[in-house]
Design a protein around this nucleic acid. Structure first.
Lengths: 199, 199, 199, 199
DNA sequence: AATGAATGAGTATTCATTCAT
DNA sequence: GATGAATGAATACTCATTCAT
C-alpha cells in the first residue's frame, strides 16, 4: 500500500513536470531528459512509469482535457440554457487565452506522434466536449431560446467558429490585445447567434 | 545562361524536395539531411542555395501560400459577388482537403521556427488572403446580397468558421468521409449565411 | 562501490585520452570525437561524464597544472633558500622540455575556448605558481642570499625570463639540442642572478 | 603588364583582408570563406593567388614580421647605443600592446599549421630580429655602456625577458592596466640592465 | 523503484578544397 | 581572373531508449 502510493506519487510528479514542461516549452522542447530533470529523477526512471515518450505525452493530453473541462463545466451553473451557452463560450475563451499551450495542444496540434493510440483517447475526450456543447444547444432549443435545428450541427458550427477564431490568432496571423480579442470574440458570437436565436 | 538555369534548377529541386518532405513528414521530420537526400545532393550543397534551414523553411511557407492562392483566386471568375463568395469557400475547402499539410502549415501551425522573420512573411501573406475575403464580403454588401455590416468582421467570422471546421478535423477530433465533410461544410456555411444574407 | 569505481575509471580514461590527444595534436585537433575514439567509447558517452567540451578542456588544463606542480614542488626539498630557487628553475626547465605541450597550454596558449570560466581557473592555478616563486624569492632575501628588493617583482622577472626563453623555442624560432638549451638556460639564469644576488 | 598589376592588386587585397581577419578574429576564426567575403570575392578565387590556406597564412605571418620591423627599426634613430637599446625595448612594448594579435602570432603561437614550410620563413625572419638585438647589445658593449659579455646571449636574455613578460599577460594569467604594465615593464628592464650595465 | 553507463541515430552548420566553365 | 556548384569530412551536441545492477 505504501509502496503503490509512493509509486503513484512519482508517476504524478513526472506527469506534473511533463505538463509544466509542455506548457513552458511547447512540443518542440518536450523531451524525456527535461521531464526527468524537472521531476528530479533520472531519465531512465521515467520508463518505470511510462513505457515511452508517447505514453507520457498522451497523459499530458489527458491532463489538458481535464483542465479544459474545468474551464467549461462551471458553465452549468448558469441560470437558463442560453445563459449556460454564453458561459460555455466564455469558458472556451478563457481556456484558449489563459492556457494557450494546452489549447494549441488540444485543438490545433497536428503532428500527432502516434496516430492509433493517441487519437483514440483524443477523439473520446473531444467527444465529451462535443457532447457537452450539443447538450447546451439542445436545451436552448427545448427552451425555445434557439430556433429548432439539428443540435449537433449547430454545436459544431459554434465550436468551429470559436476554434477558428483562436486558430487565426494562435498561428500569429493576427495580433490584438486581449480586450480587443475579447470584444471581437463577443461580437462574432453575437452575429452567429443572431442567425440562430429565436426572434 | 546555361549555368543560371542549372542553378535555378537545383534550387527549385531542393525547394520541391523540401515541400514534399514537409508535406509528408510535417515540421518535426523536416531536416536538412532529409531534404538533401530527397534532392539527391549532399546536405552541404543546400547551403549554396539557402543559407540556413530557416530560409528554406520560409520558401516552403511561401510555396504554400502560392498553392493556396491557386485554389482561392479562381473564385474571381464567379458571375456575381455572392457566387464569388461561394466559390471562395469552395476553394478553401478543396485546399484544406487536398493540400491538408499545407493547410495545417499555413493555418494551424504554431511552433514556427523563427518568430520574427517567418511571421512577418506569414502575416503579410495571410493578410492578402484576409483582404481577399474582406473584398468578397464587401462587394456582396454593395450588391445588396449581404446585409450591411462591418465587412472586416464578417470576413473574419467566415474565415474563423471555415478554419475552425478544418481545425477540428485536422487535429483528428472528428473523422468523416470526404463527401460527409463536404456536406457538413456546406450546411454550416448555409447556416451562417442565413444569418447575414439579405432577406 | 564497484559501480562508482567503474565510473571513475571511465571518467579518468576519458580525461587521460583527452590529455594524450591534446598533447599530441594541440588545441586545434582537440575534438570530442577523437577523444571518444581514443577512449574507446561513443562520443555521446563523454557527455555522461563531462557536460561539454569546455568542461573536459578545463580538466585537461587542471591536469596540466597538476603535472606542473609535480615538477615544481620537489624543489622544496632543497637544503637552503637559494638552492630551492635553483631547483625551482630546474623543475621549470624540465617541465617545459619534457612536457612541452602542457607547457604551451599553460604558459603560452592564447585562444582559450571560454574566456570567463577557463581563465578563472587558470588565473587561480597560475597564481599558485606565482605565489610559489614569490615565496622562493622572499626566503632568499630573508636569508640574505638575494639583495633586498620587491619579492613580487623579482619573482615576475624570473618567471618572465624563463617563460620567454621557452616561448622563443616553443614558437620554433630557435632550435637547439637539449643540452645546448640547458646550458644556455643555466647561463641566462646565472646572469640574472648575478645582478640580484648579494655580493 | 596591366593584367599582372591587376593580379597583384587582388592578391594584395586578399592578403590585406586576411591580415585584418586574423587580427580581428585570431587563428580560430581565420577561414578561407571569411577572407573571401572580406575581400569581396569567391572563396575559390583565392586559390588563383594562394594555392592553399597554408600559403596565405604564411603571408600573413610575413606581414606580421614587417609590422614588427616597423615598430623596432625606428630605434636606430637613438642618439647612442644604450639609447637605441632602450628604444628597441620601447618598440617591443608598443608592438606587443598595440598589435597584440600579431604579437601572439609571431611570438607565442604554437600550433603551426605546417612545420616544414612555415618555420623556415619564421626562423629566418625571427633571425633578423634576433640579429638586430644582438647588434644593439654589441654596440653597447663596444661603447662601454654594457659590460663585456657574449652579445648573443645577452640579446637572448633581453628578448626572453620581454617575451616572457608579455607571454604571462597574453595567456591572461595576469591582468593590469596599460600604464601599470608599462611601469612594471620598465622596472623589470631596469633590474636586468642593472646587472649588465657598466658601473 | 531507481540509477549509471552507454548507444546509435540524428541535428544544423562550417570547413578547405576541387572541378568545369 | 573568377565563378557556381558541389563534395566529404568534420564540428559539438541532443534525443529516446536499453541494459545491467
Amino acid at each position: 500500500m505504501r509502496q503503490s502510493e509512493t509509486m503513484l506519487d512519482t508517476k504524478d510528479r513526472i506527469l506534473n513536470a511533463a505538463c509544466e514542461l509542455y506548457l513552458l516549452e511547447g512540443p518542440k522542447g518536450f523531451s524525456m531528459r527535461k521531464v526527468a530533470t524537472r521531476t528530479g529523477i533520472t531519465p531512465t526512471a521515467i520508463y518505470r512509469h511510462f513505457d515511452a515518450k508517447e505514453s507520457l505525452y498522451q497523459q499530458v493530453l489527458r491532463q489538458g482535457f481535464r483542465t479544459f473541462a474545468s474551464y467549461l463545466f462551471p458553465a452549468l451553473k448558469g441560470a437558463d440554457p442560453l445563459e449556460r451557452l454564453y458561459q460555455s463560450a466564455d469558458g472556451f475563451f478563457r481556456f484558449a487565452t489563459e492556457q494557450s499551450r494546452f489549447y494549441e495542444l488540444l485543438f490545433l496540434s497536428t503532428d500527432a506522434p502516434d496516430e492509433a493510440t493517441v487519437h483514440a483517447l483524443l477523439r473520446q475526450e473531444a467527444g465529451t466536449t462535443y457532447q457537452f456543447m450539443i447538450e447546451r444547444v439542445r436545451e436552448c432549443m427545448q427552451a425555445g431560446q434557439l430556433k429548432q435545428d439539428d443540435p449537433e450541427e449547430i454545436a459544431m458550427l459554434l465550436l468551429s467558429v470559436c476554434n477558428g477564431f483562436f486558430g487565426l490568432y494562435a498561428s500569429k496571423k493576427f495580433k490584438s490585445s486581449l480586450p480587443e480579442m475579447r470584444a471581437k470574440y463577443d461580437r462574432m458570437l453575437e452575429r452567429i447567434l443572431a442567425g440562430i436565436k429565436t426572434a
